[in-house]
Amino acid sequence: KRPVSAMFIFSEEKRRQLQEERPELSESELTRLLARMWNDLSEKKKAKYKAREAALKAQSER
């Protein structure tokens, strides 16, 4: 099983909040919005998710 990506971790963290704030969005619209949010995120903020990705990857390799 492959470890999850930093973007996937970000998306899972933000998805529920966005669904509550924007219930009119379809699943595909929500996914596009999350992708745009990820792309607009600064490298400094992405680092938090990339660190979690690395930790999960290291854990799965044990």
Rank of each mutant, 00 (worst) to 15 (best):
K1F: 03
K1C: 02
K1W: 04
R2C: 05
R2S: 10
R2Q: 02
R2A: 06
R2M: 07
R2N: 14
V4C: 04
V4P: 04
V4D: 14
V4W: 01
V4F: 06
V4A: 11
S5L: 06
S5Y: 06
S5E: 15
S5V: 05
S5P: 08
A6V: 01
A6W: 02
A6L: 01
M7R: 12
F8T: 11
F8C: 10
F8S: 12
I9Q: 04
I9N: 04
F10C: 00
S11L: 12
S11P: 00
S11R: 07
E12F: 03
E12G: 05
E13Q: 07
E13R: 04
K14D: 01
K14A: 11
R15K: 15
R15T: 04
R16D: 03
R16L: 11
R16K: 10
L18V: 13
Q19E: 10
Q19N: 07
E20W: 06
E20C: 13
E21N: 15
E21Y: 03
E21Q: 14
E21A: 08
E21K: 11
E21T: 15
R22M: 09
R22V: 03
R22Q: 11
R22K: 09
P23E: 02
P23A: 03
P23H: 03
E24N: 05
E24R: 04
E24G: 10
E24C: 04
L25W: 02
L25N: 01
S26T: 06
S26E: 08
E27D: 15
E27W: 02
E27L: 02
E27F: 04
E27N: 02
E27S: 05
S28I: 12
E29F: 01
E29M: 05
L30E: 04
L30Q: 13
L30C: 10
T31K: 09
T31F: 03
T31Q: 12
R32A: 13
R32T: 14
L33P: 00
L33Q: 09
L33M: 13
L34R: 00
L34G: 01
L34V: 13
L34Q: 01
L34Y: 00
L34E: 03
A35V: 11
R36W: 05
R36C: 11
M37I: 04
M37D: 02
W38H: 00
W38A: 00
W38C: 00
W38G: 01
N39Y: 10
D40Q: 12
D40F: 07
D40S: 08
D40A: 07
D40T: 04
D40Y: 04
L41Q: 04
L41F: 02
S42L: 01
S42T: 10
E43M: 00
K44L: 08
K44Q: 11
K45S: 13
K45V: 09
K45N: 11
K45Y: 05
K45M: 12
K45I: 10
K46I: 02
A47H: 03
K48E: 15
K48P: 14
K48V: 08
K48F: 10
Y49G: 00
Y49S: 01
Y49L: 01
Y49E: 01
K50E: 14
A51K: 11
A51W: 04
R52N: 03
R52M: 09
E53Q: 06
E53C: 09
E53K: 02
E53N: 02
A54W: 05
A55L: 09
A55S: 11
A55W: 07
A55N: 07
L56H: 12
L56P: 06
L56A: 13
L56I: 14
K57R: 10
A58M: 07
A58P: 09
A58T: 11
A58Y: 05
Q59F: 05
Q59T: 13
S60V: 12
S60K: 13
E61P: 05
R62C: 05
R62F: 02
R62K: 15
R62G: 15
